[in-house]
Amino acid sequence: MPHFNDISKQLFGKPLSELGEIERRILTHARDRRTLATDSHAAFTARLSFGDRLADNIARVGGSWSFIIGFCGFLVFWVLLNTILLATGAFDPYPYIFLNLMLSMLAALQAPVIMMSQNRQAERDRFAASKDYEVNLKSEVELIALHHKVDDVLLREISELRADLATLNRQLERYRTPPGQE
């Protein structure tokens, strides 16, 4: 088997010492005939802290139609309840200042949580893209190695055919030459 540095030069066009971490890992996987782990979602999720998972769940609920419809129902209930109770001393009379305060606090807390989740989604996308790059690079390395193997087989077969053709030509020359003129 060729030396690891020779393989690096052949496949990547540069010596092993100049390869990056990903290229070295791909070369090692290709040499050892191992597959790459492709479940990037599970690998990324395993790194998340409790707070990260909580923020993602809050963003998932807060950004759903069921939350919007449920919250609209709550707002209608609040307004109707306080309008009906207005005559008997409503808890939050019109213009619903307490409700406004609660909505402002909810928005103030929900917005950063959703932004954290969006940032994590962008990080998840970068992580997945990195894994895709690794898989594509390993595929390319495997294809190049396969091309080299096919080229070697073809060159060997061509060499054998040339040797056979030379032998055949010598035999033909013996048959073409009349006896006694050899």
Rank of each mutant, 00 (worst) to 15 (best):
A108L: 02
I84P: 04
A55E: 01
S159D: 05
K131S: 09
Y175I: 09
S130F: 09
I58A: 04
Q110K: 07
L85I: 02
G62L: 02
M102T: 09
Y96L: 14
M105N: 13
F127G: 00
V141N: 07
E123D: 08
L155Q: 11
N100W: 05
L146G: 11
Q110E: 07
S130G: 14
D56S: 11
V141A: 15
V150I: 14
M105S: 11
S117R: 02
R120H: 04
L103G: 00
H148P: 00
P93K: 01
I114L: 00
S117Q: 03
R174P: 09
I114T: 06
Y96S: 05
A55M: 12
F74N: 06
D52P: 11
L168M: 03
A87F: 07
S117V: 06
W65R: 07
F98G: 06
V76G: 06
I68V: 07
I84T: 06
D56W: 08
S64N: 13
E142K: 00
D56A: 15
I158N: 05
H147G: 09
L54N: 04
L168I: 03
S159T: 10
Q110A: 12
I144H: 02
A122P: 02
N119H: 04
R60E: 01
F77Q: 10
L165R: 12
V153P: 03
L168W: 01
Y133T: 12
H148M: 12
G51Y: 03
V135R: 01
P95Y: 11
L86W: 10
S66P: 01
R120V: 03
R174K: 13
A163T: 06
A55Q: 04
L48R: 06
Y133L: 15
L165F: 08
R124C: 13
L168R: 07
I97G: 01
L106D: 00
L101V: 15
G63Q: 05
A108F: 02
R53C: 12
K131G: 06
F91A: 12
V113A: 01
R124H: 11
E123W: 00
V76N: 11
R53T: 10
